[in-house]
Design a protein around this nucleic acid. Structure first.
Length: 1071
RNA sequence: GGGCCCGUAGCUUAGCCUGGUUGGAGCACCCGGCUGAUAACCGGGAGGCCACCGGUUCAAAUCCGGUCGGGCCCA
């Protein structure tokens, strides 16, 4: 009896149930601590460092997370097998606006006021809890999909240690003079007191009809007014300048007559008033009759001063450009007047222009959305959007309004309160990225990007237009900005550690419970300026959460306070991998922090993944109902199948159209097939007591059959290609090749051709050679697929060897582990390719000639090609041919055809090519060849030489034959003899009967070894079955006693027809 | 509005860098074959304005320019 120890031989495997197989393997990993061991095994080896981009656990994991975790896992497993120490620390991103929004929804807190009324401490406590809402779901998904990462000791951005490291890095920037305070213009809702990200803004666009005004700005030292247009009258008190396009054509016009029709709304102009505006926009803007006095370009207007609309609303300060005209490239003549009203604090373009030319940067509007005291008597303290009409009145009364009208456009609104958002310059802290532009571009160019264009194109483009990084947020839940400002002298100080904060804090300040608001807000520091005795108060901001995650590479180790060795040993990181939307997110923030703090590259390789779309290429969204739940597939086809599908479906960086049917297909083809190959091997190995480790039974490769040596060579070749494609990030091609190998080479050819070898009940060298071969091939296949689909590969490898595949070495070897592949024989591979081509060709001939496959042909001839005598038995059997011969006289069955070589002829004849081809088309191949041979091939004046044509041999007409081209070998034909004889008919009949009985045995679920009793009735006029063929039937169907009748049956259980003659049989299982 | 990527059969895709014979597969469909071979396999068929328009060229799925559609990032 065979032994049952799994260490010695395969277990009987049973039907493939992905869910239970994967669950069992997963449990074994847990019991045997395989993940930990796979790392510990390489403890003293060269590290390959991976950095996990931290997900946020306050959202449910989706199918796109499966994709990124797959590629992270795949590379880490692969590098582990190559012999590296690959530690994978988990991480959680826990701060930021999305968390706050979630909690605000939960608690129905719609504004900052309400949050503060609720209490910041309690609010932040809720945020902290909310962050872990889906942690369990993330863990379950990660485990189910076999993403190996240490989730028991993750880095967490809300931990004091992490925050302290982030503080330290900000201090480095501060000390290098890279940190400064400025403004950032953001969409802002005064009702909720919050500014919005573009993402949130896009939730609330609404079409609105609002007053828009054409305003006259009276020039100083000139009787003309400049006409500007705005859709936000509330920004007019904040006006400090006007912008013109330097190359735009403007004109000065004089009003000659009042308007012809009735005038709508307020405003107007008197005859002889002079106005200046863009010439192209005259018809749109003007309602009066007028004449053009003068034309000039915008640059002629630059420098002219005008009178402020609301004198005293803004203090000129030391600005020399306030209330003058300046040039700006963004000015166009698509709408308005070609002259742009600029209020520095209420528009992004306005702000950057104001900074550039030195306009005063002062607010006329408070954070509450109301005009500040001192703006204007009639406006002070009122909500700006309520003042549109009043402002228009004021302008109209002063004759500063030309015209008003209603303007309809899409404008962002607060998705919570439905109020229009104001573009508002918020106080903000910045990192001066513009100062390190050259460096960061240089570091980026050192990264190995996959695909390359992400680095050169996407990231490169972004870096060339780099802007200073606004790192502060007026929020509650986040890493507090560690900057304190002295109330007395205004000096700012950046804290770099808890210790430093404690040493500077005033005696009355409490020691914060943790490094979050509101606790750190209560800490006051002694001013660090020598002469100053003031108290320093913390800036009330938190950091952009991208800054948090951008610190991951050192903050995960609490560097520089701890783990110096761990940090130094893992920096720069070898590999990171996230979806392409991280280009301006994490990919950038890591690079930004490493450049500014460490003056170094941050990661050596970055794989940027495409997005997962639905099967129509549309974005997945809840509202469209096209979101794929990974568990639907985990629970059906298994995570191996989903991982393999995702890998092979498209290049990692391409957007993936996720097709649930594709997962099904992968399951049915790759996994069922591989599993059945494994089961086939395991069944016979168990039956025969095959022990791969028993050296006395070993058959050296060179003594095995050509078929064995072929499949071994194939797996060596495939492994080589597979590895090369891994190296060049083309995992999709690698996977497709391996799948092709498993299905076509291994299952459809090697196993199919080897079935009978294993049926042999007696022990034989050939059988053992086959078993060793299967064992070796399956081991190598499991190793290659282990990084992609870690469950089945491990199950197979473990069944075969008792060792987890994830503890083994990469078969291709590396600079750390030995190569372990069978010998290659490319000549043999070529020959087998031809053999398989011949058998397919044979089937084609039979279809064309309407000759059933089971009816043998007496003779077949192979014409041309290499010596295939090793394989004649196989070919004859596949073709069902009695005698297979090689025909050396090529002309017997083949004729010559010449094909023009377009590439050669094109170079030679250029534009004449069509004529040459027409000439070649006229002449027959034999004649042309003889002319070329005699050196006189001249067609219509064109000389044709041997280089201009290729010779192909095709089968002669009238034969049951077909020709195919083999690489480097030329054309090979197969010819089949279609004649019939009694003997052939008898053999064909035997095959038909056998096939039917076998099918019946299978229907009855008979054991393979079971013997049967058999009666067969052929009709009286049926062709006779020879006694030899009858023996064949009995042998094949394991009929220990059998009888053949030529008569009508009276009690047959089954019958069928062959060529119109009825055949029937009965079959009984022997006891 | 700017940048980057994608568009090939009903679906998923190869080929494009480096132009050259008839654009190659798989799924699904139809016909046939084969099977102690598995949701498998083999042969054949049908199914392609290679998104569209223009250019370069003897020759374009391939190179160039533009348009449209999809995706992402930034404004």
């Amino acid at each position: 009896m065979p032994k049952t120890s799994s260490e010695k031989q395969p277990l009987n495997s049973g039907a493939y149930d992905p869910v239970s197989l994967e669950t069992e393997v997963s449990e074994r990993w847990n019991t045997e601590k395989t993940f930990k061991k796979s790392i510990e095994q390489r403890r003293n080896s060269k590290p390959f460092t991976f950095l996990e981009g931290p997900p946020t656990a306050n959202g449910k994991p989706g199918i796109h997370h499966v994709l990124s975790r797959l590629y992270k896992d795949m590379v880490c497993r692969w590098k582990t097998m190559e012999g590296h120490l690959v530690e994978r620390k988990g991480g959680w991103d826990t701060h930021g606006l999305p968390v706050e929004i979630e909690v605000q929804k939960q608690l129905n807190l719609m504004s900052n006021e309400e949050i503060e009324a609720y209490g910041m401490e309690a609010f932040n406590q809720k945020c902290k809890e909310s962050v872990w809402t889906y942690e369990e779901a993330w863990r379950e998904m990660s485990e189910r999909m076999a993403f190996w990462v240490d989730m028991d000791n993750p880095y967490v951005t809300l931990h004091d240690e992490y925050i302290e490291s982030a503080w330290w890095s900000l201090k480095q920037m501060h000390d290098k003079g890279l940190l400064f305070r400025g403004h950032k213009v953001l969409p802002y809702c005064p009702q909720t007191g919050t500014s919005y990200s573009t993402h949130e803004v896009s939730l609330g666009y609404k079409e609105v009809a609002e007053p828009a005004v054409y305003v006259k700005f009276q020039l100083v030292d000139d009787n003309a007014s400049v006409l500007a247009w705005t859709t936000t009258p509330w920004t007019l008190p904040g006006n400090v300048g006007l912008a013109v396009g330097p190359d735009v054509v403007y004109c000065r016009i004089r009003i000659t007559e009042p308007p012809a029709g009735s005038w709508e709304g307020r405003g107007g102009a008197k005859v002889d008033d002079e106005l200046i505006l863009a010439k192209d926009l005259l018809p749109e803007v003007m309602r009066h009759k007028m004449e053009i006095i003068e034309e000039f370009s915008g640059s002629d207007l630059v420098g002219k001063a005008y009178h402020p609309l609301f004198p005293g609303a803004i203090d000129r300060g030391d600005s020399e450009t306030a209330w003058t005209i300046v040039g700006a490239d963004f000015v166009t003549t698509t709408d308005g007047t070609g002259i742009v009203h600029t209020a520095v604090m209420y528009g992004e373009d306005d702000y950057s222009l104001g900074m550039e030319v030195g306009f005063p940067a002062q607010h006329t509007v408070g954070m509450d959305g109301k005009f500040i005291q001192g703006t204007h008597d009639e406006l002070d303290g009122q909500y700006v959007k309520d003042c549109d009409s009043k402002i228009i009145d004021l302008l109209s009364n002063d004759s500063q309004l030309y015209r008003e009208h209603i303007y309809t456009h899409d404008y962002p609104h607060c998705w919570r309160t439905d109020h229009p958002l104001l573009y508002y310059a918020m106080d903000s802290w910045f990192v001066r990225m513009t100062a390190v532009k050259d460096k960061i571009i240089e570091y980026n160019s050192q990264v190995e990007w996959a695909p390359e264009w992400t680095g050169t194109g996407r990231v490169g483009e972004w870096l060339r237009n780099i802007k200073d990084w606004a790192i502060s947020r007026e929020r509650y839940w986040g890493t507090p900005i560690p900057v304190w400002i002295c109330e007395e002298c205004g000096h700012d100080h950046c804290i770099g550690s808890i210790e430093e904060m404690i040493s500077l804090k005033t005696e009355s300040s409490p020691t914060p419970k943790e490094l979050h608001r509101p606790y750190v807000d209560d800490v006051k520091l002694h001013c660090t300026q020598k002469e100053c005795n003031g108290k320093m108060v913390r800036e009330p901001y938190v950091m952009d959460c991208w800054f948090d995650s951008g610190c991951a590479f050192f903050a995960q180790w609490h560097y520089p306070f701890e783990n110096e060795d761990k940090f130094k040993g893992s920096f720069p990181v070898d590999y990171i991998c996230e979806a392409v939307d991280q280009t301006r997110g994490w990919f950038y923030s890591l690079l930004a922090v490493s450049t500014t703090v460490f003056d170094s590259i941050c990661y050596n390789r970055c794989l940027s993944l495409g997005h997962v779309l639905d099967n129509e290429g549309k974005k997945m969204s809840k509202s469209k109902g096209n979101v794929v739940n990974p568990w639907d597939h985990f629970n059906k086809e298994g995570s191996d199948a989903i991982r393999w599908y995702m890998t092979t479906q498209s290049a990692p960086w391409n957007p993936m159209n996720f097709d649930p049917n594709g997962v099904r297909e992968t399951y049915a083809k790759m996994f069922l097939t591989l599993w059945n190959v494994h089961r086939f091997h395991a069944d016979y190995a168990l039956l025969d007591g095959f022990t791969p480790s028993d050296k006395s039974n070993f058959i050296p490769v060179e003594q095995r059959s050509p078929l064995d040596r072929w499949i071994l060579s194939r797996i060596a070749t495939v492994a080589q290609d597979y590895h090369n494609q891994f190296v060049s990030w083309e995992f999709h091609k690698a996977g497709r090749d391996l799948e092709n190998f498993v299905i076509n080479d291994l299952s459809n050819w090697y196993v199919r051709r080897s079935r009978r070898r294993l049926w042999d009940e007696a022990d034989s060298n050939d059988k053992r050679a086959c078993q060793h071969t299967l064992h070796e091939v399956l081991c190598t296949v499991s190793k290659l697929m282990a990084p992609v689909s870690p469950f089945m590969s491990d199950r197979i490898h473990y069944d075969l060897t008792g060792i987890s595949v994830h503890m083994t070495d990469w078969p291709m070897g590396s600079d750390l582990v030995e190569k372990d592949l069978p010998p290659q024989d490319l000549e043999l591979e070529k020959q087998m390719a031809i053999v398989r081509n011949l058998t397919e060709t044979g089937r084609r001939i039979r279809v064309d000639s309407k000759r059933r496959q089971r009816l043998p042909c007496q003779s077949g001839w192979i014409v041309g090609g290499p010596d295939l005598s090793d394989f004649h038995a196989i070919i004859a059997e596949e073709l069902n041919v009695e005698n297979l011969e090689t025909e050396d006289d090529l002309d017997r069955f083949q004729q010559i055809e010449l094909f023009p070589e377009h590439k050669v002829l094109g170079k030679k004849y250029r534009a004449e090519l069509p004529n040459v081809l027409a000439e070649l088309n006229k002449i027959d191949s034999e004649t042309l060849l003889s002319q070329i041979d005699s050196g006189t091939a001249n067609l219509g004046g064109y000389e044709i030489t041997m280089e201009d044509v290729s010779i192909r041999r095709v089968e002669k007409e009238g034969y049951a034959a077909s020709t195919f081209a083999a690489d480097d070998i030329g054309d090979i034909s197969l010819v089949l003899d279609m004649s019939l004889s009694d003997s052939l008919i008898s053999k064909g009949l035997a095959r038909e009967i056998t096939r039917r009985i076998q099918s019946k045995r299978k229907d009855l679920d008979l054991e393979l070894e079971a013997t049967i009793s058999l009666n067969v009735w052929l009709s009286e006029d049926s062709p006779k079955l020879s006694s030899q063929d009858w023996e064949y039937v009995k042998f094949e169907t394991r009929a220990s006693n059998a009888e053949l009748f030529y008569s009508e049956s009276n009690n047959a259980s089954d019958n069928f027809e062959v060529e119109g003659k009825e055949i029937s049989f009965t079959l009984k299982l022997n006891n």
